[in-house]
Computed example of a mutant assay.
Amino acid sequence: LFLTVIHFLKYFYTASSGIPNFPSYVSVGLVDDVQISYCDSNINRVIPKQEWMNKVSSEHPNYWKEETQTCRDKQQTFKISLEIAKQRFNQTGGLFILHLVH
């Protein structure tokens, strides 16, 4: 007899411009709607948000380094995408937010 357990992994990515005192990029990871990680353009690294996430590095020593690089790469991609959207909509000033749930 096998028992199957299903979990849901989601990431929220947000790029913005024109918002004072707010990071231009934020990434949040969730498992079953519980936050597990956080990264933004101010800190430029991924922070585990659950104690059990700290144990990942014992099995995969480069995990946090790789996740941080992924965060930085996505930050650049979203920054470019936001600039392209601003150009296409002929909007150079004001508040802009690009949000993706994956």
Score class of each variant (00 low, 15 high):
37 S>I: 00
102 H>Y: 11
56 V>Y: 03
69 Q>D: 15
43 I>S: 10
33 D>I: 08
35 Q>E: 15
45 R>I: 04
43 I>H: 10
62 N>P: 01
43 I>G: 09
56 V>L: 15
69 Q>T: 14
13 Y>C: 11
62 N>K: 10
65 K>S: 13
89 F>A: 02
71 C>Q: 00
10 K>R: 13
95 L>D: 08
39 C>M: 11
7 H>G: 09
20 P>V: 03
92 T>E: 12
33 D>C: 12
3 L>Y: 10
56 V>H: 01
53 M>Y: 05
36 I>L: 06
76 Q>K: 13
68 T>D: 11
35 Q>M: 15
94 G>M: 07
89 F>R: 14
55 K>H: 10
14 T>F: 02
38 Y>F: 13
31 V>A: 11
17 S>F: 05
11 Y>L: 02
37 S>K: 02
95 L>V: 13
48 P>Y: 12
33 D>R: 06
89 F>H: 15
21 N>Q: 14
58 S>P: 01
86 K>D: 06
1 L>W: 05
32 D>E: 09
96 F>A: 11
32 D>N: 14
87 Q>F: 11
63 Y>C: 06
23 P>Y: 09
26 V>C: 08
21 N>V: 08
23 P>W: 10
37 S>A: 14
38 Y>D: 01
18 G>D: 07
90 N>Y: 12
17 S>R: 12
69 Q>G: 04
88 R>W: 04
47 I>W: 13
64 W>A: 06
77 T>D: 04
77 T>Y: 05
98 L>W: 02
22 F>H: 11
65 K>P: 01
57 S>K: 14
56 V>N: 05
17 S>P: 01
62 N>Q: 15
16 S>N: 15
73 D>F: 05
6 I>D: 07
70 T>E: 10
39 C>R: 00
84 I>R: 09
26 V>R: 00
15 A>E: 00
76 Q>G: 04
84 I>P: 00
2 F>M: 13
96 F>P: 00
20 P>D: 08
65 K>D: 07
99 H>T: 12
20 P>F: 04
